[in-house]
Simulated assay, not measured.
Amino acid sequence: MDRWQAMRIVAKVAETESFAEAARLLHMSPPAVTRAVAALEEVIGARLFVRTTRSVKLTEAGARYVADCRRILADIAEAEAAAAGSYGMPSGTLAVTASVLFGHIHVLPIVTDYLDAYPSMAARTLFVDRPVNIVEEGIDVAIRIGHLSDSGLTAVRVGAVRRVVCGAPGYLAQAGVPMRPADLKDHRIAVSTGAWASPEWRFGRDERVTVHPALESNTNEAGITAALAGWGLTRVLHYQIGPALREGRLQIVLAEYEEEPLPIHVLYPEGRHAPAKVRTFVDLAVSRLRATKLLN
């Protein structure tokens, strides 16, 4: 069995979730693809896919194996590119992820400038307010806000951002300015129900408050919009309300009780062995994000 070809086939079946589609993309017959997967499963001694009449899904063992296959195939492609003298030239499609607002405000301009600098490149962005598994979702570079777990990825710190409580001056004039976190019980609160949301708001000085929001939404933008309208208070990251703060439409409260700022990192796999498209984008992103004055 050609193990390298078998890995390519398994990775393509996992990507397309279809033996027939994988066969079409690989210019093979469906029976050849099916035989290759079956032979590999027999050699490994584990089932890689659960097959039904309507779908093809990875088993737990299959997911681990496919992740390793993708890494090995990327290493082979990198070695071939280096041997051909193209290691230093970015090529292909770059996949970048970040949270929604940070992605729109800070990351997208970097991506478009990168594409201007390398016209032969293409890019795909995934801006979502949830943790993204870089390997499983085919991401090349991630920009993360918050403390990192030990993931084995290369991480470059580019700054930090404050988490702040804010409201419109008109609302604060009417409802009063909270002087300590416990005062939040007397205010209307709008919150996001995103991946990292919690009813317990932690502050510096070991202060903790369980909030009972009157308004919940699945986006930070909705909470900010409610605060701008003078409806109540919300808690967001500082960069998300930068223009509103500068224009005086929002005001930060409880600043003296803020936690330590959350770190911002650029993450990518492979470290120094990363392909040219990743290394060149990371260099640009690190330089630009470190120079961004909103990261404070």
Rank of each mutant, 00 (worst) to 15 (best):
R3T: 15
R3C: 09
A6L: 04
M7T: 04
A11K: 09
K12P: 00
V13G: 08
E17M: 01
S18V: 01
F19G: 05
L25R: 13
M28H: 02
P30C: 12
A32T: 09
V33W: 07
T34N: 06
T34W: 06
R35H: 08
A36M: 13
L40A: 08
E41A: 08
G45S: 13
R47P: 03
F49D: 13
F49N: 15
R51L: 13
R51W: 04
L58H: 05
E60N: 08
G62H: 13
A63N: 06
V66K: 06
V66H: 12
R70P: 03
I72Y: 06
I72A: 15
L73Q: 06
D75S: 10
A79W: 00
E80K: 06
A82G: 04
A84K: 02
G85R: 04
G85W: 00
S86T: 15
S86D: 05
L94F: 02
L101D: 14
I110R: 07
V111S: 06
V111G: 08
V111I: 12
D113L: 01
D113E: 15
Y114P: 06
A117W: 04
S120I: 01
A122C: 02
R124C: 00
T125R: 08
F127C: 06
I139E: 11
D140K: 11
V141I: 14
G146H: 08
S149G: 14
S149I: 02
S151T: 15
G152H: 08
V156K: 11
R157T: 12
R157L: 01
V161S: 15
R162M: 05
V164E: 11
V164G: 10
V164D: 09
Y171C: 07
L172W: 11
P178W: 09
M179A: 15
R180H: 15
L184I: 12
I189M: 14
P199S: 07
P199G: 02
W201I: 08
F203Q: 12
R208Q: 04
V209G: 00
T210F: 00
T210Y: 00
L215Q: 07
L215M: 03
E216A: 12
N218I: 01
T225M: 01
A226G: 05
L228I: 01
G232V: 01
L233Y: 01
T234K: 03
Y239P: 12
Q240S: 13
I241Y: 13
I241H: 14
G242W: 12
G248M: 05
L250K: 13
A255H: 10
A255I: 03
Y257P: 06
P261H: 13
P261S: 14
L262G: 11
P263M: 12
I264C: 03
I264L: 08
V266Y: 03
P269R: 07
G271C: 09
P275D: 09
P275S: 09
K277E: 05
V278K: 11
R279Y: 02
S287R: 15
R290Q: 15
K293R: 15
